[in-house]
Design a binder for these strands. Structure first.
Lengths: 245, 245
DNA sequence: CGGTTGATTGAGGCTGCTCAAAAGGTGTGG
DNA sequence: CCACACCTTTTGAGCAGCCTCAATCAACCG
């Protein structure tokens, strides 16, 4: 049944469905239940706030296109980036599902965000066990990623931290089909932001990036990452991609 | 309908049900679906391995009584404690739900662990949307706790880290009814293990604990924690308990 | 009482931080 | 097309929080 491309016939596959289908097989009924998120979606410019700490959007906000990150800011200026969000990831939510956000979310690039009202989201989960299971599995993978960050911040040295984060992102970008033809990928973080994800200052991040560049391991410029020697980078980071799936 | 205390009539309330009921209201049907975990449970001595990294237990292992922790070990001896597990928490699982464990789990005290076969667990989730939702909410809280650890490790100084972790544990212990009559609680970690949770060496952990003790903030000895000045400790840690529920 | 584990103390060193400034890039307005 | 502002990257110098190595002390246990 090729090309049912009449307008409004079949909702276009969106990043959320694509991601959840990594964890479960959905029937057409379930795909329709998640529905046409394009309809509710909105484009956001780079660097804009999607969720502010303390917000209660009363909805679930999946990221359909573009990149974003969660972050926690201190009053005194310290800032920690908590996670990088790729298409299919859920930026956050609240309402019946959870309390007000304990973090903010910002777009890294032009990004498209959908909006599923909390009550509707819960109704979907109640009605479709396959979706509930996929969400649980997806949450478990997200926990594994967070554990990897805990290990990174708690035990690894600066160059190991950078290496590990870039290995993780490279894999996740690949899963999202976001690796460019020449093998690099777009990651429009400043060195200051990269440092905030790694628990390092921008000064130190800069110096270590220069070392890694000098060793022909990676390149990080203009918001594009090139990994020149993946095996050596993975060895340096002690990276094992098993946790990402 | 008081006291149906005939043998094998109503499964005794267990810590897993108690925890999930913080997130949803269960009917008797749902409580029975989770079932009598006592039957499948086993006591484990302190300091024993419950899950070994790389394991695939093909089951979900809820902690019913006692304390445990997840940890990741490096070949070179570095170790990071990833989370503290209290009664009601799920130590881990694998099988259809997730890949092999990327972490190990050890008991901190005498502990009772239940075992729910993966296939059975998935059947329960499929059949009971209320349980699925409670699991999702529970996973979201666990993610929030992990984010707090990321912030701790990435941005806070040693004394702030210790303060924040103890605030978190005090709250969670209280939720589990594990705060002792005199206000303290049992946390049988060595200073070395506490350091492993905080990304610090045991030597530095020791010195900072002495400072906090000297400032009349806390006491940490013989596996028992006393918080002498909770408001000041929370201020030091910039602790806000909202994320724990 | 020796052995083991954990807490404590000391001295010295390194990773990563702070403060400060300069250099390079980019967009805007005159 | 230049001047200017702004942001990011880069570099330098000095400092400090935390680490490493090592030894001692205290408690518990067979």
């Amino acid at each position: 049944m090729p090309d049912p491309s009449g307008p409004n016939s079949v909702p276009s596959a969106n990043a959320l469905i694509t991601k959840l289908e990594r964890f479960a097989t959905f029937s057409e009924v379930e795909r329709e239940a998640i529905g046409d998120l394009d309809a509710s979606s909105e484009w956001i410019a780079p660097g804009k706030s999607i969720i502010t700490a303390g917000d209660s959007p009363e909805a679930v906000l999946p990221l359909l296109e573009g990149l974003a990150y969660r972050h926690k800011d201190f009053r005194d200026g310290r800032r920690q980036i908590l996670s990088l969000l790729l298409p299919g990831d859920i930026c956050g939510g609240s309402g019946e599902l959870s309390g007000p956000a304990d973090y903010g979310v910002r777009s890294l690039s032009r990004a498209r965000i959908a909006r599923i009202e909390s009550a509707h989201f819960i109704a979907i989960v109640r009605a479709h066990p396959a979706i509930a299971l996929a969400l649980i599995k997806s949450a478990l993978v997200e926990q594994a990623i967070q554990r990897a960050w805990i290990v990174n911040l708690g035990q690894r040295h600066a160059h190991e931290r950078i290496a590990h984060l870039l290995c993780e992102v490279a894999h996740r970008m690949n899963d999202c089909g976001l690796v460019l033809s020449h093998g690099g990928f777009e990651l429009p973080l400043t060195q200051h932001e990269l440092g905030s994800a790694l628990g390092l200052t921008s000064v130190h991040t800069n110096r270590v990036l220069q070392q890694l560049r000098a060793e022909q391991l990676i390149e990080f410029q203009g918001g594009v990452v090139h990994i020149h020697d993946a095996p050596r980078l993975q060895a340096l980071a002690d990276f094992d991609p098993a946790y990402l799936s």
